[in-house]
Design a protein around this nucleic acid. Structure first.
Lengths: 196, 196, 196, 196
DNA sequence: AATGAATGAGCGTTCATTCAT
DNA sequence: CATGAATGAACGCTCATTCAT
């Protein structure tokens, strides 16, 4: 069973920079070619390192892609935690979370989409699923405040709903996030039974 | 000019059975391995035919996958059309559509999921997109009756929402559709603003 | 060791017609696609018979191509024999042979060229080489009359020269046989030391 | 855009040796099996490298064969240029060119033959045709000195004649080049009308 | 006989991965 | 540490050939 964890902890600055370059190269190829056409040789070339170097930091191709996924998800989770930490009221918090989700998905929409498609074929690690659960848990924590008797799966459903609407919009060519935001808010409020 | 249409119309009964066997084998591999690991040789083997036979009916790998997609989508669309034809009231129609979606998605949830992920990489034909639009149009037609001033994208969003909740549930291990149905109805009613 | 002889002697008229259709179809494909792209299935289709029928008359692909070659060479040889039979003087005979060669090559120039390229890869039968030798012998017979002390290989060389000039001309895009004829006559007379 | 140019410039010595080994292996297979039966896997195997290595240097099978062709033609052209550079009288130059052609063709006669048959199916590049034209131009330049009113196609014809006689001789089993040389000189002188 | 569905060896090619330098 | 030449399993696909109907 091959691991999808990086090989080195990158204690040195240079190594860190190399790893980041590799991850960003992979991200860019994911954006431009989709997951099926991405090859490790291309990633290395675009990152400006040799293929041997790539394999010194990542044990295999999946590990590189997983690193991209991790980087993106970590950013989203950090945003969520920031919002929670702000201690706004529950409704404002929910609104902020929705906006953060939308903003995240629309920063690099093709990348977000590509990752979504690749994720289920990736065989991720326990820690990755843990982060997913943590993200849902953050939402659940807020949901319980505004809708105490909501379904236990409400948070999961809400995250799924937001992603689905955003992705579908992106895929059908919508390029204006401000046209999507109200639909997300409406979908979430509606699901939770909050009066709009 | 690479088309994704089958090669022959399969006039003989044997040929028809062969084509169906190939499609079903592809569907099963999609379920068990996902699209990335599906190979034409495996499809042929699982279908119990030689690789040459597969290529006598489908011009390339994509055509085989497209045939699976078409089979599934056609079944869903037919279900929708049946429901519409029944001429129930709009609310009952919506309920029936939701249930049909759930049933369809839950019959072979891993297949539905895999197809969803593969579809955008498939370069489908005009007729396939036409079917997609027809499906959304059917929904839009009903939506407009219960929510005349709904967003133009409402139908698209609703289909996405239902699929997302169902898929997420399936992926997180939920096996009981009756636990999902109320959440779908709630999400849809909520999005459309039909009472609290 | 597979034979390249037809399978049946085609006693019946229908069978003869079928075989001729197959040979002509192969000839046409040789002309339009060259030997590398010719497939037995295409030959059968163009001939209007099933692939099974083709294999009932010819044991393999090479046999079909060899049949084309045979047909063409037999025609050329027959022309040569006609000319010899006419009993003209040796110089006129030589001129007539040259013109016949040129005419033959220019009737279906692409076919002649394709056959020339395929012939050495064909592993022909004894009888085929016998016909080649017979053709050269016919020429040698005339050559000896006009140049009694010519090299023993003179006839072989002359046939090769005529084919080479004609083919090179055809390949370089020359379409007018009347521009080639004088060069052939000059090359032959020159080689034989006849005063022009 | 499929080019038949090599992929890398082979900066390291090892790479250069690998490329040469591949080309030589292809040449040997061309000699022993002809172009139709040559496969990239066999070439790689005979060259003692893996199939992947072959494709690191040549983008496709045609490129490998084109490299063989280029190597041979470049050698012949270089020989011609050497002779021209020697500045002999025109008749001696022609004699030298004929001998060079014969020597070249007889060094590896089966290879020369195979290449001749493969060339037209190869879809060569502009530069390759340029070299062909240069070779014919060199000959034309000398021809014009000894036969000022020769046909414009004389040089082309002469090259074709020499090749044809030599190939035919080689194919019919002649193994002694000294028996061929006088026939070539006679054919050329005769075609050009240089004394009897 | 004639058909054409079926076969499967084998082709050209890719690309994740290794390891000598 | 980095390089990049080399590897080779495995892929998508073709096509000569067979054989049940």
């Amino acid at each position: 069973m091959t691991s999808h964890q990086p090989r080195k902890s990158a204690q040195q600055g240079r190594a860190k920079a190399t790893m980041a370059a590799i991850v960003e190269a992979a991200a860019r190829l994911l954006e431009t070619q989709g997951g099926a056409r991405l090859t490790t040789n291309h990633v290395a070339e675009l990152a400006g390192v040799s293929i041997g170097t790539l394999y010194q930091y990542y044990p295999n191709k999946e590990a590189v892609i997983a690193a991209v996924l991790r980087r993106e998800k970590a950013a989203l989770l950090a945003g969520f935690e920031d919002i929670i930490a702000r201690g706004l009221g529950p409704k404002s918090t929910i609104d902020a979370l929705i906006d953060a989700t939308l903003a995240h998905q629309y920063t690099r929409p093709r990348l977000a989409l590509a990752l979504e498609y690749i994720e289920p074929e990736l065989g991720l690690l326990v820690e990755d699923h843990a982060r997913d659960r943590r993200l849902v848990a953050l939402v659940a924590q807020v949901v319980i405040e505004v809708a105490p008797d909501a379904d236990a799966r409400a948070a999961q459903d809400l995250v799924a709903i937001c992603r689905a609407i955003t992705n579908t919009a992106a895929m059908s060519g919508e390029t204006d996030p401000t046209a999507i935001a109200p639909r997300l808010h409406r979908a979430v409020s509606g699901y939770l039974g909050l009066h709009a």
